[in-house]
Write a protein that binds this DNA or RNA. Sequence first.
DNA 1: TATCATTATGTTAACGTTAACATATGGAGG
DNA 2: CCTCCATATGTTAACGTTAACATAATGATA
Lengths: 335, 335
Amino acid sequence: MANYKMKDIADMAGVSIATVGRVIHQNGYVSTENKAKIEKILQETGYVPNKIASGLKKSESKLIGHMTVFSDNMQYEMISDAITRSASKSGYHVLTLTSHLDSETERRQVDQLIGQQVDGVIITSNPAIDAKLITKLTNAGIPVVMVERTQDIPKVDGIAVDDYLGAYEAVSHMIKHGHKAIGFIGIKPEQAVESSRFEGYKGALAKYGIEPNDDWIHYVEGYSTGEGKTGAYSIIKNHKGPMAIFTTSDVLASGVLQYCYQQGLRVPDDISIIGYDNTIAKMLAPPISSMALPGQEIGEEAIRLLFRRMSDKSAIEEKVVIKPYLVDRETVLFL
Amino acid sequence: MANYKMKDIADMAGVSIATVGRVIHQNGYVSTENKAKIEKILQETGYVPNKIASGLKKSESKLIGHMTVFSDNMQYEMISDAITRSASKSGYHVLTLTSHLDSETERRQVDQLIGQQVDGVIITSNPAIDAKLITKLTNAGIPVVMVERTQDIPKVDGIAVDDYLGAYEAVSHMIKHGHKAIGFIGIKPEQAVESSRFEGYKGALAKYGIEPNDDWIHYVEGYSTGEGKTGAYSIIKNHKGPMAIFTTSDVLASGVLQYCYQQGLRVPDDISIIGYDNTIAKMLAPPISSMALPGQEIGEEAIRLLFRRMSDKSAIEEKVVIKPYLVDRETVLFL
DNA sequence: TATCATTATGTTAACGTTAACATATGGAGG
DNA sequence: CCTCCATATGTTAACGTTAACATAATGATA
């Protein structure tokens, strides 16, 4: 009924607690008889070492904190999942804390993570987080890795997604297919982490000498199907001829498709489209091309960077850049 | 740079560690001067209590384990998120462990949770988990709540979703709209937790005296858009006249919509449809009706049951039944 | 035979917090 | 003036594990 501790095992085997420890950790000298006897008891009792006690002694918790934002965007769930699985391969657990971008919650969370004695922290996609909080973590000796935000804080490693490149490639793809009228639906650059997606869009137009047109651009407040639909309406309604639309998220693209469905427009025959993040792209009708962010890779890299710094706290800062790539489902018409 | 401990604070304030403890816990007697002085130091140093140490002493970790399965099904993410947020309101953190339904991983995870000294465990949607493992948890004094699986294990509370009702209502909705030909796309009842969704489908047909037809039924191996599309093809291809299709997941429905899009069939004009879980339903073109599982409510109930048992380990077992409800987006044609 | 490594085992002081148990100084009530 | 209680503070033994530091017996080497 109760939980066995080393003392109990030691008593049962008629040895000292130290000998039990030697068997559990497979170090030091133990006679073959005692070893066998203790292992048998360990088996029978289903003894599980108390990580809290050992954590206190060794000052490590085998816990990794993951601070992220609450969002409809499935992309972060992929990353989150990759982090969890990657960490568990090395015997670490992940504590995921979500905020709604309010700094009071974040302050509390940082204290909780320190209190919980986590061995490291990964912060994904919070553009607003106070650098003081990060410093508090590093001051407490906790390594920090930041995903999708390259801020230069000493001893903090980072992973950035090359969103400029992603948007640039998506739009270039459209231009190379002969498109001239290319719409943009996304969050206003000033308020988004992913502002470079808008820059990439403009960059591609500029590169190929296409004059930008304000009628083609629709800013949204957040990522939702409804916002995408509104955007499609505002861009398409007065437009004649073929049109290609780049959205900074698949969710926005889903709204574009709803608008097209309603209006009887076909994709890509009437409207070409490329989404971003490649989350629900394959589930839409039709499945759409999308810039994929390798969530798996991002999560694994985050863990790699974190473990690297955990083993060498004074390592030189490393910034990893992840490149999105086009998953082509042929939703851009060749003109 | 380093982390302050109570001893450091005590030294700075020139008092004993006990007095510092009294200020932190706001109990016992402390003179107003000392209280002010200590509070100031606490502020300045940014002292954070070490939960590992206090956890060892009080034998509690403020950690809740959440065992779940890795799945494409967004439904579990909703539940997971609700659990995390609900727990954090009471100062608890959640450790999420995902398995791929293999018992070896699960055995390891149970040991990890015991080792981590979690204060409670929530298990979502694992039809195959070994009752022995659950017993190991309860034997270790850890309360367990099971979601979507009502197995009778002493001292284990449960939350079940009334999937029979959900399917029954979806199909009844179709019948009441005049449909006779009603297709089913879902996992073979034998291998699924949600087998009652198939029963509900059959139940509704029986209730209204509609003869079931094997041509209307398509079993899938798992939840994916592709499987849904294949299902739609096999059900619709030889069918004349109006058809309604019930899928046991929105992801499957997304495949049906892709098939329709390809064939130029309109929803609901040509094909009526109702999905299940109401996850991506609103993002599809057109947005479809779906049976919603209140993930928020499920997560909150799970935490409530868990806390209840944590405070009274010998409470009588409670089984909560959650009812899905139709979110009607008018994708069933009135005949 | 003295010396020394090897093998085998035990004892104990941390780790940081908690809380029960002292101890001590007032003043109020008899 | 003694007793009692409220106030204020300090000391210390846990919690379960780890690992450094004994201790001791065996057999091999010089």
